[in-house]
Every structure is written in C-alpha cells, then in structure tokens.
C-alpha cells in the first residue's frame, strides 16, 4: 500500500488491522477450545472460553471507536474508506463468531454422558471445516487476498452439508433414545452455532473481497 502523507493516518489504519487480527486470533482459539471442551467434557476449559469472550467484546468496541475516529478526523477516501468500513463490519462479525463459540462452550456443560453419543464424532469434523474457514479468512484479511476469500465462500457449502447430516443423525438418535433428548437438543444447538460460524466467515470473506477490490464477490446469491 502507498504510504500516506499524514503518518498518523497510516498508523491508525495499521492499528485497526492489528486489532481485527487480534480479535480473529482470539475467536479462532475460542472455537477450538470450545470444541475441545465439548468433546472431552472439560468444564474448566468451557468456563475459560466463556470468560475469554469478554476480551473479544472489549476489542470490538475499541475497533468501533478507532474506526469512527479515523472517519471523523481523516475523512478517508477510496480504498482507505473501504478499509475502515470493512474493519467496522468485520469486527462485528468476528464478535459474533466469538459469541457462538461461547454458546458452544455453554452447551458443552449441559451435556451429561458423552460415551453413548455418536453425533459427537461428527461435530468436531464439522467444527474443523468451520475453523479452517475462520483461519483462512483471517489470513486472507491479513494478506488482502480476494482469491482466498472466494475460496472460503465456496467452503461454506461443506459446512451446510455437515449441518444437514448431523441434524438428521441427531434427530434419529433422539427418536431412538428418548433419554438423550436434552443432550441431543444441546448438540443440535452446537451444530447450529457451528453452521452460523461458517456463515459469518463467509460474511467476513465478502468484506475482505470488498475492501481489497471494491466489489462484492461475483456469485453473491443475495
């Protein structure tokens, strides 16, 4: 990127990107740890994820403040404006990803006996795909790489397919073992949360694409 005449502006934008990356890193770890807690039934880890979400929220409001300040003081134009707007939106979405991870951690505390639950083996595989999306999209954001952003958007289908198969699987399981309905319902929420994380990673991908090129990705089905 070309340097700006006003050095402070450069510094603000760099700091903004740094904050977004930091948030992303925290959200990535939160998802990973929430899934670990879910699979192993580790309530301490789950508590840690729930507590850690506060830090993501704090960072989000920091990004908001900084972005508004940059707009007010520097009146950015063209790609700078896109950069700031994208940062503003991405921060909101990443914060949601953190929230979903928190929800997964909360749900993990509600699930009692893990032994007899076959869908529990499918969920980590699904979370892997979603986690990969989050990881890739943060890398794409750091590198301003629209091609990688489009790849992430394409991956979302896999997460949706996983969601459908897990949904059917869990429902069948609950029909057969009514005793597990409470835990099963929690697992459905977890699957739903992971699915939403995938969708949100797609949203970030669109913003990354927008910030880098000025256009939304071509096959946008909105």
């Amino acid at each position: 990127m070309v340097e700006h005449t006003v050095k402070a502006f450069d510094e603000d934008i760099t700091r903004l990107r740094g904050l977004i990356s930091e948030m992303g890193g925290l959200a990535e770890v939160a998802l990973q740890e929430a899934m670990d807690a879910l699979v192993k039934g580790d309530n301490e880890l789950a508590d840690k994820v729930v507590k850690g979400d506060k830090k993501i929220d704090a960072l989000e409001s920091e990004v908001d403040k900084l972005a508004v300040r940059v707009i007010a003081l520097r009146a950015p134009m063209a790609d700078d404006l896109r950069e700031v707007i994208a940062a503003l939106k991405i921060a909101g979405v990443v914060e949601r990803i953190g929230d979903y991870s928190k929800n997964i951690a909360k749900a993990s505390r509600e699930i009692g006996d893990r032994k007899q639950f076959e869908p529990l083996t499918l969920l980590p595989a699904m979370a892997d795909v979603a986690g990969e999306m989050v990881h890739d999209i943060l890398t794409a954001y750091a590198a301003r790489d629209p091609a990688l952003a489009r790849e992430v958007i394409a991956t979302d289908e896999k997460v949706d397919a996983f969601y459908n198969s897990i949904f059917r699987n869990v429902v069948t399981h609950m029909v057969e073992n009514p005793a597990t309905i409470t835990a099963g319902a929690q697992l459905l929420f977890v699957a739903r949360n992971i699915e939403r994380i995938g969708d949100h990673a797609t949203n970030v991908a669109e913003m990354v694409h927008f910030a880098a090129t000025g256009n939304y990705p071509p096959d946008d089905d909105e």
Binding site: R17, G18, E28
Partner: peptide
Amino acid sequence: HIVGQDARVAFRQP
C-alpha cells in the same frame, strides 16, 4: 504483506 503491518496481523494467536 506483513512488512510494515501491525505485528498482530502477522501473529494473531493470543
């Protein structure tokens, strides 16, 4: 891309 960027862009891991 990392040169000139915030270090957190290069290492975002907490």
